[in-house]
C-alpha cells in the first residue's frame, strides 16, 4: 500500500471525510450541469408533443415543425435575422479589427478616451443602449427607413436603423477579441519581414493579417452570434412591423405558450450549436491551446 506523506498525516476519519467531500462535490457538479441542461432538454422534448400543452406528454408528433415551416411570418423573420447578422457582422468586423490594431500597436493622445468609448457599449445594459438609439433615430431624422432588398428569393425590408444598432454594439466585441489575439501574437515574424525589406503594407498583408486571422474569425463569429441572438436593441430600433426571429418569438410568447414556440426555439438552439461547433473547429485548426476555449467562445 502506497502512502503519501499527506495521507499519513491525515487520520482515517479525515481521509473518509475528504473522500465524502469529493463525492459530494461530484454529486454537486452533476446537479449543476443538470440544472444548466434540463430546462433546454425539456424545451426540446415538448416541441414534439402531440398536444397544445408544454407540460403534459401526449405522444410524438412533428406537426409543430410543419406548422413552423408553413408560417410565412416565421420564415420571413428568420431571413431578416440572417440578413441583419451577415451585414452587421461584415461591417463590425472590419471596423473593429482596424480599431483593435490602432489600440494595441500604437500609443497616441486620446487613447484612454478611445478605450472608454470602445468598452462602454459592452458594459452598459441593452435596454439603455436600445432607448439611446431609439431617441437618436427619431431626433436625427434618420428614422426607420427600410432597405428593400432581394435576399435568397425573399423580398426583405430591413430598417437601416437595426443594422446600425447591431454594428454599434458589435464593433466593441470584435475589437476586444482581435486585441486579445494581437496582444498574444509573436512580433518577431513581423520584425523579420521588415528586416527583409518588406514595406508596411507587405508586412501587414503577408505576415500580420494571416497570423491575426483566427482572432478576426473569432470576433466575427461572436458578432454573428450576438446579432442573431439580440432581441432588445432590435425591438427598439426597428420602428413598426419589422421582426427578426427573436422579436417574433417574443411576440408569440406574449400571445400564449404553444409547442410551436418550442419548435422555433429548437431551431434556434440548433443554430447556436452549429455556430459553437464552427468556432471550436476553427480554434482547433488554428492550433490554439485548449484553455482558450473558455474565453472568446
Amino acid at each position: 500500500m502506497s502512502t503519501t506523506p499527506s495521507d499519513r498525516t491525515l487520520g482515517m476519519g479525515a481521509r473518509l471525510r475528504s473522500r465524502l467531500g469529493s463525492l459530494s462535490l461530484s454529486v454537486y457538479g452533476v446537479l449543476g450541469f443538470l440544472f444548466l441542461y434540463l430546462p433546454i432538454v425539456i424545451l426540446v422534448i415538448f416541441s414534439f408533443n402531440d398536444s397544445r400543452s408544454t407540460s403534459q406528454w401526449a405522444g410524438f408528433t412533428t406537426d409543430w415543425y410543419r406548422q413552423m415551416i408553413e408560417d410565412r411570418q416565421i420564415i420571413l423573420s428568420l431571413w431578416n435575422s440572417l440578413f441583419v447578422a451577415i451585414i452587421s457582422t461584415a461591417i463590425a468586423t472590419v471596423l473593429g479589427t482596424l480599431a483593435a490594431m490602432a489600440m494595441e500597436r500604437y500609443s497616441f493622445r486620446g487613447k484612454m478616451a478611445m478605450d472608454a468609448v470602445l468598452y462602454l457599449p459592452i458594459i452598459i445594459p441593452d435596454i439603455a443602449m436600445a432607448i439611446m438609439l431609439l431617441i437618436f433615430f427619431n431626433v436625427s431624422g434618420i428614422g426607420f427607413q427600410p432597405w428593400e432588398v432581394q435576399f435568397f428569393g425573399n423580398r426583405l425590408a430591413v430598417p437601416y436603423s437595426v443594422i446600425i444598432g447591431h454594428v454599434a454594439f458589435n464593433i466593441s466585441f470584435v475589437a476586444v477579441v482581435v486585441r486579445a489575439r494581437l496582444a498574444n501574437m509573436d512580433r518577431t515574424l513581423e520584425e523579420a519581414a521588415q528586416d527583409l525589406y518588406a514595406n508596411t503594407w507587405q508586412t501587414f498583408r503577408r505576415v500580420t493579417l494571416p497570423m491575426l486571422m483566427p482572432g478576426i474569425l473569432g470576433g466575427a463569429l461572436l458578432a454573428f452570434t450576438l446579432s442573431l441572438d439580440d432581441f432588445v436593441i432590435t425591438f427598439f430600433t426597428s420602428g413598426a412591423g419589422f421582426n427578426t426571429l427573436p422579436v417574433r418569438v417574443f411576440g408569440m410568447i406574449r400571445r400564449g405558450v404553444t409547442p410551436k414556440i418550442n419548435a422555433v426555439s429548437t431551431l434556434m438552439l440548433a443554430g447556436s450549436f452549429l455556430l459553437i461547433l464552427i468556432s471550436i473547429i476553427s480554434r482547433m485548426r488554428s492550433g490554439e491551446d485548449e484553455d482558450a476555449i473558455q474565453f472568446g467562445l
Binding site: I40, I42, F231, V249, I253, S265
Partner: peptide, 16 residues
C-alpha cells in the same frame, strides 16, 4: 454552451 444559446429562449424554457 447554454450561455451562447439565445437568452430569450432560455427564459422561455423556464416559463414553461
Amino acid at each position: 454552451i447554454p450561455f451562447w444559446t439565445n437568452f430569450l429562449i432560455r427564459t422561455y424554457a423556464w416559463l414553461t
